[in-house]
């Protein structure tokens, strides 16, 4: 197999906030159709890394490329149009819009665009898929926190992204919802979407991720298959502390 399946390449990326180095010379690759997990203790720079990929923050050094083309100097709307969509750690819905409009928001301007009747049709199918069928004209504020997360996912999926960034999307779900969520992400992967997820739920990491990247204090300390990485003594040390 000569075909290169590299989708996203992060090379020597550094991000500083004043004196604080939030991401320190980080490099990793993500292949097509892969589920990549980013884990690490709080404050280790995971969400910052997601923000750098999606263009919400500008990086100080290094490059990020999508399908071999640099995206690290682009603004977030351009990055989205190239095919990277995301959800947010603190869920961000569009409160004064209906569910259908929230889902449509993702497909009107982004990677693969639709508008009018066709967009409405696709958006309602998406709502169905994330478990919000039959509530199209409900205002988004009427949803519970969990349903808002589903809605956000529908919005992210709306433009048929190549790469999907999920920032603690599974956090706060109960066991049944968690299983549904995991199944949903599995099915997305089967459709050919490449997924990068930041997550604290270890069960989800184990069952979903093909590969894991462990961050501590902005740097990569381990990378590999979830089982191997999670038994790495270095990783255990950052998670549980030195003295154990």
């Amino acid at each position: 197999m000569v075909e290169t399946s590299l989708v996203l390449a992060v090379q020597n990326v550094t991000k500083r906030f004043g004196g604080l180095v939030a991401v320190n010379n980080l490099s990793f690759d993500v292949s097509r159709n892969e589920v990549m997990g980013i884990i690490g203790p709080n404050g280790s720079g995971k969400t910052t890394m997601m923000n750098l990929i999606s263009g919400a923050l500008a990086l100080n050094e290094g490059t990020i490329s999508l399908n071999g083309r640099y995206i690290s100097r682009l603004s977030s709307h351009e990055i989205n149009r190239r095919g990277i969509a995301r959800t947010f750690q603190l869920v961000r819905i569009l409160p004064s819009l209906t569910l259908l409009e929230n889902a449509m928001a993702g497909m009107v301007f982004g990677h693969q665009r639709l508008w009018g009747e066709q967009a409405r049709h696709e958006a309602s199918k998406l709502l169905e898929r994330v478990g919000l069928g039959g509530q199209q004209s409900v205002p988004a504020t009427a949803l519970t926190y969990i349903d808002q997360k589903r809605l956000e996912l529908a919005r992210a999926l709306a433009a048929k992204p190549e790469v999907l960034l999920l920032d603690e999307w599974l956090a706060g779900l109960n066991p049944t919802e968690l299983q549904e969520g995991i199944d949903l992400i599995h099915s997305l992967r089967d459709e050919g979407i490449t997924i990068i997820l930041v997550e604290h739920v270890m069960d989800a990491i184990r069952s979903l991720c093909d590969r894991c990247l462990v961050m501590a204090a902005g740097a990569k300390i381990a990378e590999g298959r979830p089982q191997e990485v999670l038994s790495d003594p270095e990783v255990i040390k950052v998670y549980l502390g030195e003295d154990i």
């Binding site: 919400a56 969509a85 409009e101 433009a159």
Partner: peptide, 24 residues
């Protein structure tokens, strides 16, 4: 139009607007 829809999204959350591909 798409422009009007974009404006409503911007009014709700500019950050989200940028992340769904709107040139705000």
């Amino acid at each position: 139009s798409r422009l009007g829809f974009a404006m409503r999204i911007i009014g709700n959350d500019e950050m989200v607007a940028r992340h769904v591909g709107i040139n705000t």
